[in-house]
């Protein structure tokens, strides 16, 4: 196999990249100045060497525990449960949340052979066991059928943990247009309506 073919087939393994795009990317890289390409290669290498999952929350970072778990300014009474480490980035960008996280590593999907034992649910139970600082667990799994089911399952696991369990709100997107929202979302938004503050 030639070096070109080798890079093509490696790139084609990435999500959302097919054979054609992989070939285009390969030839694009060949046209770049050599130091640019070396920088990319070094960045990929250092990510794979230095990034580790946090043993406390499952977030990805260079330290263990991660920077969020170690940050003394974070509110240790709040714990937000997400499916993937990438969801933390989305929530952090809002700058609205000051609590801690817990990454499940996916959602329940018996069809794919993913059961509770394959998710970091035991770790979550241990973190909120009686006597810890956590007072509220926010379930922020995706609003898909499997995400809902996973939230329901985790709710059951935390039944006797002595913490308040909340579910992130579902409804209309901000700046959206009611007319173009799908029926399920509108129905959900109507069901979750709340009193208008004065």
């Amino acid at each position: 196999m030639s070096a070109i073919d080798e890079l093509c087939s490696e790139l084609a393994k990435l999500p959302g990249i097919g054979r054609k795009t992989a070939t285009r990317l390969t030839y694009f890289l060949l046209k770049q100045p050599p130091d640019e390409v070396v920088r990319l290669a070094a960045a990929i290498r250092s990510v794979s060497e230095r990034i580790r999952p946090c043993s406390v929350c499952g977030n990805l970072g260079e330290t263990d525990p991660c920077l969020i778990c170690e940050d003394p300014r974070r509110d240790k009474e709040l714990l937000c449960v997400v499916e993937e480490a990438s969801d933390i980035g989305a929530i952090e960008r809002t700058g609205e949340y000051r609590g801690l996280y817990h990454v499940l590593g996916g959602h329940l999907s018996p069809l794919d052979g993913i059961g509770p034992e394959d998710l970091r649910i035991e770790g979550l139970r241990a973190r909120v066991a009686n006597g810890c600082e956590v007072r509220e667990v926010i379930l922020a799994t995706n609003p898909s059928m499997e995400g809902e089911v996973t939230a329901t399952y985790v709710r059951g696991v935390l039944e006797n943990a002595g913490v308040q369990v909340t579910r992130i709100a579902l409804g209309l997107p901000v700046g959206g247009d009611l007319e173009y929202a799908d029926g399920v979302t509108i129905a959900q938004a109507l069901a979750a309506r709340r009193e208008m503050p004065r």
Partner: peptide, 28 residues
């Protein structure tokens, strides 16, 4: 479509012999 998707997941959990996993899909 929703019903069939939820049934597939529940049946897969039943085949794995895991009751609580299957029951998590009862609501959908």
């Amino acid at each position: 479509t929703d019903w069939k998707a939820a049934m597939k997941q529940r049946n897969a959990a039943l085949k794995r012999g895991n009751a609580s996993e299957a029951q998590a899909f009862d609501r959908p």
